[in-house]
């Protein structure tokens, strides 16, 4: 393609503007979280006092603990189930579009629909709502994401080495541990990190499946109720910390398995 100076200038300006649009709103929140006066309008000096005030807020701490429990347990289950699913699907090679749709559905179904469906389901079964129901629900979409990341890795996997291993007398478990797992491990870890982030950030489904009462409030639910009362320096600090966790997990995930975020 011809690269006239005007064209290059146009392309660069587009990139600068788009990245400014994507990052300025977030950057403002991060900057304000370090603002001593706490006012969103005047910069009165650098301070960590809003982070300290978070540490003394019992509601936020218990919400953070709940979020951690939900994210860790749902990620563990989803990683196991999603990885097995990915191996099973890729091993088979011939599968119907019904199976494909079933695996793809949790990623495209609107959150609110899955949320009300699960609420109806749990209440019809007279299930007590709480952290355990949030975990059950989070595994649904988490396993789909883990599966898609691991499947992408398995696309280029040479299944004949699995057969070779079996022919040489290795048991199925040994073959998995020594042959398949080392190949897919980066994708499994990347998928798990992605699932962890999704779970930490998920609000709508948690909101509907948590039930009444503060005992099962997660961090996004806590943030939502705080936002409804307006802008506070604590929300800025809390938001900054949550974003730091997500961005770290995702960057790690991306480094382990190129292109995971692009899926």
């Amino acid at each position: 393609m011809t690269s006239s100076p005007a064209r290059i200038f146009g392309l660069r300006t587009t990139l600068v503007l788009v990245f400014a649009f994507l990052y300025i709103p977030i950057a403002v929140v991060v900057a304000l979280s370090f603002n001593q006066g706490g006012l969103p309008t005047v910069w009165s000096g650098f301070s960590l006092k809003w982070y300290a005030s978070l540490a003394g807020n019992a509601a936020i701490l218990s919400a953070a603990l709940n979020t951690l429990i939900v994210a860790l347990v749902s990620t563990a289950i989803a990683t196991l189930l999603g990885t097995l699913l990915a191996i099973g699907v890729e091993m088979r090679r011939q599968y119907g579009s019904g199976l494909e749709a079933l695996i793809f559905a949790p990623m495209i179904i609107p959150d609110i629909v899955l949320a009300v469906a699960l609420l109806s389901f749990f209440s019809m079964l007279d299930f007590t709502l709480g952290l355990h129901t949030i975990i059950l629900a989070h595994v649904v979409f988490n396993l789909a994401f883990v599966c898609s990341v691991v499947r992408a890795r398995l696309k280029s996997f040479d299944w004949s080495i699995v057969e070779a291993s079996a022919d040489l007398g290795a048991s199925a478990v040994t073959t998995f541990r020594r042959v398949t797992l080392p190949v897919i491990l980066p994708a499994v870890v990347a998928g798990a990190l992605l699932a962890f982030t999704l779970s930490v950030d998920e609000f709508i489904i948690a909101f509907f499946t948590a039930g009444a009462g503060r005992a099962s409030t997660t961090l996004p639910m806590q943030i939502y109720s705080m936002i409804r009362f307006g802008i506070t320096p604590e929300i800025n600090a809390l938001s900054t910390m949550v974003m730091a966790v997500s961005i770290t997990a995702l960057t790690l995930s991306q480094r382990l398995n190129r292109g995971v975020i692009g899926q």
Partner: peptide, 27 residues
């Protein structure tokens, strides 16, 4: 990577950022 990164961070926080920008005494 950097254009997709914000998408995977918290939806509520990204929405909240716009309250900070757009409110009457906002940026």
């Amino acid at each position: 990577f950097f254009s997709v990164l914000p998408f995977w961070s918290n939806y509520l926080i990204r929405t909240y950022a716009w309250i900070v920008l757009l409110n009457r005494e906002g940026l």
